[in-house]
Amino acid sequence: MSTDFYNTYILPFSGIIIKLCRAYTNSQEDFEDYYQEVCLQIWRSRDNFREESEWSTYVYRISLNVCLTLLKKKKNNVQHYASDYLPAEETEDNYAFSDESLNQLYDAIRQLSEIDRAIIMLYLEEKPHQEIADIIGTNANNIGVRVKRIKIRLKKLLDGKIN
């Protein structure tokens, strides 16, 4: 991949890519695999960009779609969907952020369904409901309703009321 392409078209959006990949993985190794794969798929899909949306929206779509349909290796070398077992599996110690509250928030986010994870991540990134709807493939009103529900569930998870 051209370094210029990475620096110009991917790196400015690496923040959201990192945050998304973190929500769908629980080890540094998987995270790096996911990040690399997302970047590779953005590069490969560059010619399909139609300028009907912002480049940033396009990057989010690819990042999310790749994360939703990636298979990762479990320790016994059997491939699984990342999200199949995230809630039950503890994250590696070296994978944690230095901010404990953020770690707890991520642990709670990983317990949501894959789609809810995407919605709340985009919401926390202050994306308008319309843009989130465009990325997921629904409408803005429904995103508003779902965000409210997810926030209630996250609050409960953070308060330790449910597992």
Binding site: F49, R61, I62, N65, L68, T69, I135, I136, G137
Partner: peptide, 11 residues
Amino acid sequence: IDKGQNSYDYL
């Protein structure tokens, strides 16, 4: 299959 579609269409 275009990975740049919205998630619903892509899936």
